[in-house]
Amino acid sequence: MLYVVITFLFLAIVLYFLLGGADFGAGIIELFTSETNKSKTRKTMYEAIGPVWEANHMWLIIAVVIMFVGFPVIYSDLCTYLHIPLLIMLLGITARGTAFAFRSYDAIKDERTQTFYNHIFVYSSFITPLFLGIIAGSVISRQIDLHATNFVDAYIFSWLNYFSVAVGLFTVALSGYLAAIYLIGEADDEKDARRFIKKAKVMNIMAVIFGGLVFITAEFENIRMAHWIFGNPVSLTAVIAASISLIISWILINKGKRKIIRVGAGFQVTMILLSIGYMHYPNIVMVKNGQNLSLLTLHAPEKTIQDLGWGLFIGSFLILPSLFYLFYSFQKRDQ
């Protein structure tokens, strides 16, 4: 049952990045849109994510619950040494959701308050995936020092380093790319579709640049990133599959197949996550002095894992059909 729980954990993380990441990416796209096109972008974005944006955070909640119940030692260490970036990320999620709701449903849409909500929405949409990526980079950077004796070493340098920041910027670019790809299929005219295609190309280029920066900073900080990805057949195959899928996606875009490319974009990001995570599994956190926090050793008692596994199974049968129906309903409504 332990492997079932671990599988649910990784699925929740991947789905949160694919759906929640695209959610944040919509705000990133708006942030880098000209004033002339901002209103149209907001309309398209609202039609795409408005009805279901809050449901995307379900995956984050599931991941947190699994960590809290199933792996309390790892959860405690993460929340202790990474509490600053975690707090900023959670504040970003809250501010973004609040601004989205107020600017969409405010009874009195005053121009000044709308501008205020818009600024909160777009900047929190940038900050949240940035710190999500910083947290992801921190858990594999070996900068977390469980034996630190001062505040700065324990709670600042555990996440504030070149590699983690590079991963954060890479995450922002991937989120923007996902959102642009998803929004291409939602555009109601050719001009808007071409505009989102252009945004997708820009975000694709930025993802490549920041991806290169991740490798450069990894070498600078003695993180074996290249070895993890290119040193084993599974990770290497995942990278090749993502690259081929990217080429196919752009061919499909040029041929006007603009809805199916969402599957390709999701596949690409999944392969990227697989290529990075496979090599050091089951070590979900890698800390200083060669220590690792392993999912296979630092888990809750067997009875707790059994109950958690069954709870996840039963919850899946209850929640997933409703979630799929929610997406289906709003897609059907728009047709």
Results as ranks from 00 to 15, higher is better:
Val287Gly: 06
Val287Arg: 10
Ala180Trp: 06
Thr297Met: 00
Val172Glu: 01
Val208Pro: 01
Leu178Trp: 04
Gly168Cys: 09
Val167Phe: 09
Ile229Tyr: 00
Lys201Val: 13
Arg224Leu: 13
Glu221Cys: 06
Tyr278Trp: 15
Asn204Arg: 10
Ala180Thr: 12
Ile216Asn: 05
Gly256Asn: 03
Tyr177Trp: 15
Arg194Glu: 15
Met206Asp: 08
Ile272His: 02
Ala200Val: 08
Tyr281Lys: 01
Ala241Glu: 04
Ala200Gln: 10
Asn232Asp: 11
Val208Arg: 04
Glu219Ala: 15
Ser249Ile: 14
Glu186Arg: 14
Ala179Phe: 03
Val285Phe: 08
Ile184Gly: 10
Val263Arg: 09
Leu174Asn: 08
Ile181Ser: 01
Leu273Asn: 02
Arg258Asp: 07
Ala238Glu: 02
His227Ile: 13
Leu213His: 04
Ser243Val: 06
Leu213Gly: 05
Tyr182Arg: 06
Tyr281Ser: 10
Ile223Trp: 11
Ala300Glu: 09
Leu174Phe: 05
Leu236Ile: 05
Ala193Thr: 13
Ser249Lys: 13
Phe210Pro: 01
Phe210Val: 04
Ile216Ala: 12
Gly290Arg: 09
Val172Leu: 05
Gly266Thr: 09
Pro301Gly: 06
Ile260Phe: 05
Gly211Pro: 00
Ile260Gln: 13
Ala187Phe: 11
Met206Arg: 04
Ser275His: 03
Asn204Met: 13
Val239Glu: 02
Ile261Gly: 04
Tyr182Ala: 00
Arg195Ala: 14
Ile248Pro: 00
Phe267Arg: 07
Lys199Trp: 11
Gly290Leu: 11
Ala265Leu: 03
His299Phe: 04
Leu178Gly: 04
Val269Tyr: 09
Ala242Arg: 01
Val214Trp: 03
Pro301Leu: 08
Met286Val: 14
Val269His: 01
Val172Ser: 04
Lys198Asn: 14
Ala187Lys: 12
Ile260Val: 13
Ile248Asp: 00
Phe196Ala: 02
Asp192Gln: 15
Ile284Asn: 03
Tyr177Ser: 11
